[in-house]
Amino acid sequence: MANINATPGESHLAHHFVDSEQQFDSSKLGMWIFLVTEVLFFGGLFVAYIVYRSWNPELFYMSAKELSTIMGAINTVVLIGSSLTIALAVRAAQLNQQANISRYLIATILLACVFLVIKYFEYTSKFAVGILPGELYTYTGIDHPGAPIFFSIYYMMTGLHGIHVIIGIGLMVYLLVKTRQGSYNAAYFTPVEITALYWHLVDLIWIFLFPLLYLIE
């Protein structure tokens, strides 16, 4: 890779940084600290999950049976695939392969959309039988007084995760447009890198949501 510092007048370098490396490291650390806040943001919901599961283990065993393991598993694989493709997009940027950045970004966006489509089918099939969050819950198939609680937590967790997926798609569409304009190359690919970090976190959260929500026997 070329020496990224000594090139005078690099357009991406903001005035208050000394050089590109300082700027890159700062952005990356900033993103990591943002991910810390994301972990604790979802953490609150995980705490609610753990507390209610420890109080009502039977309810959780009964309710999880309503969720489709197959769909959850497919979605897990889809998200892992999208994590791989965005990692490859970063690699393409580092290697200055402009066309590949676009390709991998498109692949990631498509996989993210597949995830949402599957999620849509899951939600609608639940809505159809009256499994809705909170007081809208009308399903009678689970014989437990606290039955709505599990699904409230389920909808909060997957809903919040889904919002993160949608935000991720938006970010990657932006990256795609900028890539087409030739904004990213081996010397400057910070936005691709930090968006990839964000996307991996979305994957990480799902890695825990999947066994906790779908795989309770």
Partner: peptide, 20 residues
Amino acid sequence: PVLAITLLLLIMERTLGVGI
């Protein structure tokens, strides 16, 4: 972030009655 999720749950509680 924990305050954020708490208040989000509170808002959900008021709008949807999630019951947590």
